[in-house]
């Protein structure tokens, strides 16, 4: 594709965007709803878990404790890179009518997509939280203890220091969720205006040669990612200024 054709496509994409195709709006809202819910629930589950794993004392004398720690961390690291299509497939196989959870009737629904993304997002929030908490000066915990904090209160003091890291966990998770396509396509079925998201529609639009629509959706996706990252950056700068 020459540069000219590319620019022309981009221009048409933006024009399409500004005409505010109501379907595009619906798709965008569904995308935000699915990824937003998955990230929210994923953070609620993943951040406390990551904080617990990152903060608990693994320096036990027993080698078994250390081995358990090693295995746990390896599992989390592996799951952080879980292939979305595999997750989508497993969720689909569980939720389909003949699957063990078929009675819930959730296959090909936004809920199925949320479940898929939740599974993808939880290890990410856990993993990023563990490293955020691990990056906090060890002296902070002892400082809190020396001022009379209980272990729990000291743990909270450490979490507070890791604030930006925890925020990063949420942002990274959101980035992974909103750009995911393979998993939700399988579990959600990519049903137009029911389970179609920006990413699945990009795939579809390319498939039928509608590059302009694909680019429009891509620009919206990018804009969302950009907006989210602006918020993160503002918070980071505010924190760094101190």
């Amino acid at each position: 594709m020459t540069m000219y054709v590319f620019l022309e496509s981009l221009f048409n994409a933006l024009r399409l965007f500004f005409l505010v195709n109501p379907d595009v709006l619906d798709i965008t809202l569904l995308t935000l709803r699915v990824s937003g819910t998955a990230v929210l629930l994923g953070s609620i589950a993943g951040i406390p878990t990551g904080a617990y794993l990152g903060l608990r004392e693994w320096r036990g004398k027993k080698t078994t404790i250390r081995i358990v720690n090693l295995i746990l961390r390896s599992i989390i690291n592996t799951f952080m890179g879980l292939p979305p299509v595999v997750v989508g497939l497993v969720v689909f196989l569980l939720l389909r009518y003949e699957g063990p959870l078929g009675f819930l009737g959730l296959v090909f629904t936004p809920t199925a997509m949320i479940i898929t993304q939740l599974i993808l997002v939880i290890p990410i929030t856990i993993g990023v939280t563990i490293s955020a908490v691990g990056g906090v000066d060890k002296a902070i915990r002892e400082k809190a203890l020396s001022l009379g904090a209980t272990n729990r209160e000291a743990a909270f003091a450490v979490l507070k220091e890791a604030k930006i890291g925890l925020l990063t966990a949420v942002i990274v998770a959101f980035g992974a969720a909103i750009s995911e396509v393979g998993g939700i396509m399988i579990a959600g079925g990519n049903i137009w205006l029911k389970t179609s998201t920006l990413t699945t529609e990009i795939v579809d639009a390319v498939q039928v040669g509608e590059y302009e629509l694909a680019l429009t959706l891509g620009v919206i996706l990018l804009a969302i990612a950009f907006a989210i990252n602006i918020i993160l950056t503002i918070l980071q700068i505010r924190e760094a200024k101190h």
């Binding site: 709803r33 819910t37 929210l40 629930l41 629904t109 936004p110 949320i114």
Partner: peptide
């Protein structure tokens, strides 16, 4: 979020 998700699912079904 949770409310929207549940209500949305309800109306869909």
């Amino acid at each position: 979020f949770v409310t929207v998700a549940i209500v949305g699912e309800y109306f869909l079904s």
